[in-house]
């Protein structure tokens, strides 16, 4: 059973994703900030990181860069409520496996997770 880590500063979104992914049979760990994610060392046990871009402190893109910089090979799916070319480019540059615009259908998310080897 795969473990999905979800980082989003919006509690409602976080809760919704938790319920959705759990219903699809994933183990879900939720974090309200990049800092709390790093603090929990969750990257070690997660199979996929579902990451929001705009967070209160360290942004999602920065966290993604940090993970890469630290040599972690954790697949990252970026999600954002503010879709623009700059963000999209930065996300793919940082090596995300999928880029989702909020609100998105669960099928897109499940498909993206499914594509992760």
């Amino acid at each position: 059973m795969r473990t999905i880590a979800v980082v989003d500063d919006n509690p409602s979104m976080l809760q919704g994703l938790n319920r959705l992914l759990s219903a699809h049979g994933f183990i879900v760990r939720t974090f309200a900030s990049a800092e709390s994610f790093l603090e929990a060392n969750a990257e070690c046990e997660a199979d996929c990181l579902l990451l929001d871009v705009h967070l209160g402190g360290i942004s999602g893109i920065d966290l993604q860069r940090q993970l890469i910089a630290s040599g972690r090979e954790l697949p990252v799916i970026i999600m954002t409520a503010i879709d623009n070319e700059v963000t999209r480019q930065e996300a793919f540059d940082a090596g995300c496996v999928a880029y989702l615009k909020k609100p998105f259908l669960s099928k897109l998310l499940i498909d993206a997770i499914g594509r992760i080897p």
Binding site: N10, R19, K102, F104
Partner: peptide
Amino acid sequence: ELNQPLGAILSNTEA
């Protein structure tokens, strides 16, 4: 501000 609640609503609805 709008996409956040809409995203949450969609996720919750599908769940």
